[in-house]
């Protein structure tokens, strides 16, 4: 083993395994080995700050102290592996739902799902939205057979807690910290997508959520409407379709028989 390889191992041992004595052999002043803790702190701070940036509503709702505890545990369990931290923290919602101490606020995992969907909508590829003009190329009787993809930024999030309002309040940069102690356990759906380079979000009814998911899974417009009506008998196909079209939620346009959207 050469000296540099030995040094890498000793450094990681000192910093990651908290054994600073491992570094004494290569210091001019062995008593300074404890200063290796500086790196441990900055490593943690870098990843924890990336998490707090990705999950601003969760950080506020959880409070700084609890979020730091959570971040320490998450970084230890799922350390960064890519050289960009922009998308770091992909599994925080699942981690939160199992995290000791989060039982008192079980809705935090749902808030994390919303923060994550916001980030993914924000970073998604650019793509043009479908317009009414695009649709006018099809004869009216052919519309029901169209397979329409959703814009790549679209996320349809299913929640078991009615956390949407609290989440919105906590996303606002100037909103004060809200503990949201009165969140009810009710199935809800939220749509997040990007329009004109700004992330949008709104609550969805069960029918609308089912409709958009059916389109996403490759069903034609007519099939998706049928699926949505089976899930919610008050589903209104024409207003839901017009709403999605006008909001830029639909993307490119595929002919009947083409492969379904992803």
């Amino acid at each position: 083993m050469n000296a540099l390889a030995t040094f890498y191992d000793a450094f990681l041992d000192a910093v990651m395994e908290q054994r600073p004595r491992a570094l004494q052999y290569c210091l001019d002043d062995p008593a300074r080995a404890d200063d290796a803790i500086v790196y441990r702190n900055t490593i943690f701070r870098g990843s924890a700050d990336a998490l707090a940036t990705a999950y601003p509503a969760v950080a506020r709702m959880a409070g700084a102290a609890f979020f730091d505890t959570l971040a320490v545990a998450y970084v230890a369990s799922a350390p960064p592996r890519t050289r960009s931290l922009v998308g770091y923290g992909q599994d925080l919602a699942a981690f939160l739902s199992e995290f000791p101490g989060a039982e008192a606020a079980p809705y935090l995992a749902d808030a994390a799902r919303l923060d994550r969907a916001w980030l993914e909508a924000h970073l998604a590829p650019d793509a043009p939205s479908l317009t009414a003009t695009d649709l006018s190329a099809s004869a009216p009787e052919d519309i029901a057979a169209l397979k329409l993809a959703l814009h790549p930024s679209v996320h349809i999030v299913s929640l078991t807690w009615n956390v949407y309002n609290a989440w919105v309040a906590n996303r606002l940069a100037d909103g004060s910290e809200q503990q949201a102690r009165t969140v009810d356990r009710i199935d809800t759906w939220v749509l997040l997508w990007r329009l004109d380079n700004e992330v949008q979000h709104r609550r969805l009814g069960q029918g609308e959520a089912t409709f958009l998911r059916a389109l996403q899974s490759g069903q034609s417009l007519g099939e998706a409407a049928t699926t949505a009506l089976q899930a919610a008998d008050d589903f209104d196909t024409s207003s839901s379709f017009a709403g999605a079209l006008n909001a830029g939620v639909l993307a490119s346009f595929q002919n009947p028989g083409a492969e379904g959207a992803t």
């Binding site: 540099l4 790196y39 931290l85």
Partner: peptide, 21 residues
């Protein structure tokens, strides 16, 4: 250096100023 063993540390680690380094 900032990565080893497949992990990225998001920090800047030092190197000894040796001929090998």
């Amino acid at each position: 250096w900032s990565a080893a063993r497949g992990r990225y540390f998001a920090d800047l680690f030092p190197l000894p100023r040796t001929d090998e380094a």
